[in-house]
């Protein structure tokens, strides 16, 4: 089984997000692995552990710091890692999808996983676009994948807690919502060992990639309201809530 995982390096929101001009001030933020990509790596490694095969993790290096993430992926069980050296922190999901698709094209993947979305663009586009470029079917909102021969049984989540089970023919692209198990912890000693021993394959971005969207403006949200804490005994609190509901015409 040949599984390729396309990942995305995104600005961390652990800090207050600084804005400069029409975009994030990329010099003042740390970059981290997209949370959903952690799940697609986990899903890929779980399949490999179940039926064998190889896991290749590929991502676009936006700020020259993707190596750490790739070493982490290796420590978690990936077999091969590839970085596309773009050196453009502003490259959006459209551009990245094109570069990723070009890099994945020759890999002979049976399955391609991408996180169903990322918290920066929040448009869920990378997976579907890769599928389109590679001419493969796409299934999103995936919560588990089991490989059986030439096809896979895929669970997809719908809103409201509903779910469906699909049989999908390979090759295909899946947008992973969650792995069946929480992403595993990679001990730092193992990550560091990978950093010393592993090789990262480097490719240049290729293909005619252009941004689908242009920024008009970017600004931090303005606080328009605030929560009011109602204090006092439970009776007093209840009385105040009733009063409040009445004043809003809700009771």
């Amino acid at each position: 089984m040949n599984i390729v995982v396309a990942i995305k390096h995104i600005p961390s929101i652990a800090d207050d997000l600084p804005v400069s001009g029409k975009n994030v001030d990329f010099d003042s933020v740390d970059f981290v692995l997209n949370e959903w990509d952690e799940h697609s790596i986990e899903q890929a490694v779980l399949i490999k552990e179940a039926v064998g095969g190889t896991v290749t993790v590929v991502g676009v290096d936006l700020i020259g710091e993707l190596d750490n993430v790739l070493h982490l992926a290796l420590a978690k069980g990936a077999d091969k890692v590839v970085k596309i050296t773009a050196d453009d922190p502003a490259a959006d999901s459209h551009m990245q999808a094109k570069w990723l698709a070009e890099a994945i094209k020759g890999m002979g993947a049976n399955m391609v996983f991408a996180g169903v979305q990322a918290s920066n663009d929040l448009d869920g586009q990378i997976g579907p676009m890769i599928a389109a470029y590679l001419d493969m079917p796409y299934i999103g909102g995936v919560s588990s994948v089991e490989a059986n021969g030439d096809s896979a049984t895929v669970n997809k989540e719908f809103a409201g807690g509903a779910g469906a089970k699909y049989s999908v023919s390979m090759p295909f692209v899946a947008g992973v919502q969650a792995a069946p198990k929480p992403p595993r912890y990679a001990p730092v000693s193992k990550v560091r060992q990978m950093a010393q021993t592993a090789t990262i394959e480097t490719v240049s971005p290729s293909g005619d990639a252009s941004a689908g969207l242009a920024f008009k403006n970017m600004a931090p949200p303005v606080a328009t309201g605030h929560a009011e804490m109602i204090e006092g005994s439970s009776k007093e609190v209840a009385a105040k809530i009733v009063e409040l509901l009445k004043s809003k015409g809700l009771a």
Binding site: S12, D16, K181, R184, Y185
Partner: peptide
């Protein structure tokens, strides 16, 4: 080291410590 599944809270703390240098998932700055 053997990859035993650890408590999710501990795992989150360790992951944050590895990336942010603190266990509270706060930015270094």
């Amino acid at each position: 080291v053997d990859g035993y599944e650890i408590d999710s809270g501990v795992q989150n703390a360790l992951q944050s410590l590895a990336t942010n240098g603190n266990w509270m998932s706060k930015g270094k700055r």
